[in-house]
Design a protein around this nucleic acid. Structure first.
Lengths: 125, 125
DNA sequence: ATCATCTAGGTGACTTAGGCATATAAGGGC
DNA sequence: GCCCTTATATGCCTAAGTCACCTAGATGAT
């Protein structure tokens, strides 16, 4: 908790942008089948919560976007290996449309901010 | 409801990206003081929910990011006019850092997808 | 042998963000 | 009076995410 009663990771400033775990997962699996623990590694820069990851995978399998097989070869505990279905590829495609729009919005945001900062608002209060 | 039990706007494919209302609002107010109803117009392309907007504004005021005064001049109901505080400007600045990283992630996402699509995965199933 | 550690997958309780419907109220037109 | 627009707001619900745990196989150290 920070002094304003927020959790550390959200501390006052920027809350986290949500709802992008699905597309990250879809793209990661588009690059080849993988089990959950490996996806955590592939997407390490997104700092996924393991619990949430496994839940998301099972939800996506129920939706028919991915499918899984148990891999008991190799050592260590069994691994559930996921791969994209045809529907999953369609969903990924749909996401790219959505994310291109988001990129454009971000572009406008950052350009507008840059104009404000570089501009005449030295006396802004 | 669509046939898969989702609401229309989320229908099956892409769920909506969340958590960006704060930065949109901060930037909109950075361009000049405004009341809630006008912010709805300024941010019309983001299709904000009015209820959520007003709640967000009051939350941001509690956090000290913005402050408001009642404007009873003009006709029609009184309007609560918001403007950014110094803390709000800092928060906006923090968001730009965050959003530049998000833009980079989106860039990588779209490039990776483009490579996959244009590449050798005609036989992918 | 038992202990710690790494890999791998998972659950339960909780909080937060957002969506949807609806309420309230001031003023203007008729 | 009644409806429309402007303007702010609440209640209820679901979806998404976080946090703290739990199980279990394999491997190496003491």
């Amino acid at each position: 908790m920070c002094e304003n009663n927020h959790r550390e990771q959200f501390c006052c400033p920027p809350g986290r942008v949500r709802g992008l775990r699905h597309p990250w997962l879809l793209l990661a699996l588009a690059q080849g089948p993988a089990h959950g623990y490996e996806l955590l590694a592939r997407l390490s820069d997104h700092e996924l919560d393991p619990g949430g990851l496994y839940r998301a995978l099972r939800a996506m399998e129920e939706e028919g976007l991915i499918r899984s097989v148990w891999d008991t070869s190799g050592s260590g505990p069994a691994r559930r290996v996921y791969s994209l279905t045809e529907l999953g590829w369609e969903e990924l495609r749909a996401w790219t449309v959505h994310l291109r729009r988001l990129r454009a919005q971000l572009e406008r945001f950052l350009q507008t901010y840059a104009r404000l900062e570089g501009g005449e608002n030295d006396v802004r209060m």
